[in-house]
């Protein structure tokens, strides 16, 4: 058996099954990136009389200035940035609080309920949340606006942030907090000077992830936008019935580069959070 022989000496030659797996992985990457490559490529497509076409009809740079000069598109980007910023900030605060309570609340029963709540946040389909919020605001008479949209898209982001912070909080060394208490620190001082610095990279990573999620949210936002508060994904979705203009792809390409930069920052924060013992009592 060649497979057996190869496995016993640990570092065998390349086996057919391994090559198959590698090929499968490469195909999956190709599959995942093909639409992104297409969206970037087609932002340079000349198109036919200002409409996007499946055939690539020639190169042009016109769609970038066109996207910039499209006032409705520009305003939707501004709204998205604004909405995602506030939603991410709320998710950051609430998610950190929830993530910490998931690990450190003194009552096991409360921790159990909190983790149940966190998982429910992740398993309710977005369309159900969207219609429920629309109904909720309609019944309570709250007029739709930026605030109602921001509040509505926070729950899933809170769950994501809470799980990231929870993962970090699980690795905290309780002896540091006990040492702080022994040395006369109050609970709030310990939280601020000992726990928060250690959680900070996870908090930032959660916040940036939330920002990316909220910026891209389409389904919940589709139910809660108004003519004056229209986010980029909802604007694009609405414009589809007239056929997508290539300027849409230009705007999407710019936003993608922006998001990837943000993600790079998030990854850096998370990488730093993996290094143990960064925050030491006394060390600033």
């Amino acid at each position: 058996m060649t497979a057996r022989a190869a496995s016993t000496n640990g570092q065998g030659g390349i086996r057919a099954s391994d090559a198959g797996l590698a090929l499968w992985f490469a195909l999956a990457i190709l599959f995942l990136f093909a639409p992104i490559a297409v969206s970037i490529l087609y932002s340079f497509n000349a198109g036919v009389v200002g409409k996007q076409t499946a055939q690539f009809t020639g190169w042009t740079l016109d769609w970038y200035p066109a996207a910039w000069n499209d006032l409705a598109l520009r305003r939707s980007v501004q709204t998205s940035l604004y909405v995602a910023f506030w939603a991410a900030l709320i998710a950051l605060a609430m998610g950190t609080s929830l993530g910490y309570a998931l690990v450190r609340h003194p009552s096991a029963r409360v921790r159990w309920w909190l983790s149940g709540l966190t998982y429910i946040l992740l398993i309710v389909p977005e369309v159900v949340i969207g219609v429920s919020l629309l109904l909720f605001y309609a019944v309570t008479g709250v007029p739709l606006g930026a605030a109602t949209l921001i509040a509505g898209i926070t729950p899933a982001a809170i769950a994501v942030t809470a799980l990231i912070v929870r993962a970090r909080a699980l690795t905290l060394d309780p002896r540091l907090e006990e040492a702080a208490a022994d040395l006369g620190s109050t609970r709030s001082k310990t939280l601020w000077f000992i726990i928060l610095p250690q959680l900070l990279p996870a908090i930032l990573a959660g916040g940036l992830m939330s920002y990316a999620f909220c910026f891209d949210n389409l389904v919940v936002a589709a139910f809660l936008t108004t003519p004056t508060v229209n986010t980029l994904p909802v604007y694009l979705y609405g414009s589809l019935q007239y056929g997508p203009a290539p300027s849409v792809y230009a705007a999407a390409t710019v936003v993608f580069l922006f998001t990837v930069t943000l993600l790079g920052l998030a990854a850096l924060c998370f990488h730093l959070s993996r290094k143990p013992g960064r925050a030491r009592p006394g060390g600033d």
Binding site: L236, Y237, L240
Partner: peptide, 17 residues
């Protein structure tokens, strides 16, 4: 990485593909 590019634009690109 693809999960963080615009979901809608990726689905629109599948229309082209």
């Amino acid at each position: 990485v693809p999960y963080f590019s615009s979901f809608l634009v990726r689905v629109m690109s599948w229309q082209i593909l």
